[in-house]
Simulated assay, not measured.
Amino acid sequence: MTMMVKDPGTRIDFEIDWAAAYPDGQAIVASAWAVVPDEEGGLSIAGSAHDLTQATVTLATGVAGHVYRVTNRVTMSDGQIDERSVAVRVEER
């Protein structure tokens, strides 16, 4: 799992490119993002979007010293469902 570092006062975009995993021309038809743990003042999803091959999330806030799992779950045009996660460590920078 990939690890990234984020300051609690920043908003950052993170993107997953699903095209390499599905090279046969399949497209993303639905995308959902989740953050665990869900806690007061914790890492939050400020926005999200997707196109045919990429899913993007905007992450905000977070408690310094905490680590969160951010998961993207997509449904592809052929009905397959897949997900990927990234760990986000929040630190004052």
Rank of each mutant, 00 (worst) to 15 (best):
T75K: 08
P23I: 10
A46H: 03
G47M: 10
D78E: 01
E15D: 09
I12R: 13
A55T: 12
I45H: 08
R84N: 13
I28C: 08
Y22M: 07
R73A: 14
D13L: 11
V67T: 15
T58F: 10
D24T: 00
V67L: 03
F14E: 13
D38L: 04
T10I: 06
V63Q: 05
G62M: 05
S85M: 12
N72Q: 11
G42N: 09
H50A: 10
A19G: 12
A27F: 02
D78W: 01
V63W: 03
M76G: 07
L52V: 04
G65F: 04
R69V: 14
V57W: 03
A87F: 14
S44H: 04
T75V: 14
L52W: 08
T56F: 06
D38H: 00
Q26V: 06
A32K: 13
G47D: 15
I45G: 05
I81E: 13
A55R: 05
Y22S: 09
E83P: 05
V88M: 01
D51L: 06
H66E: 04
S44L: 03
P37Y: 08
V67S: 14
A20Q: 14
D82R: 00
G25E: 12
R69P: 05
R73V: 11
A34Y: 02
Y68V: 02
S31F: 04
S85K: 10
T56E: 13
I81T: 14
D17P: 10
P23W: 09
G41S: 08
S44G: 08
A30Q: 11
P23A: 10
V29Y: 00
I28A: 00
H66S: 07
L52S: 12
G47R: 08
E83H: 15
G65E: 06
Y22I: 01
V63L: 12
A21M: 07
Q54H: 15
S85H: 14
S44Y: 08
T75H: 02
G42L: 02
R69M: 07
G79A: 06
M76H: 10
A64T: 12
E83F: 12
I81C: 11
V70S: 00
V88S: 02
S31A: 13
I45A: 02
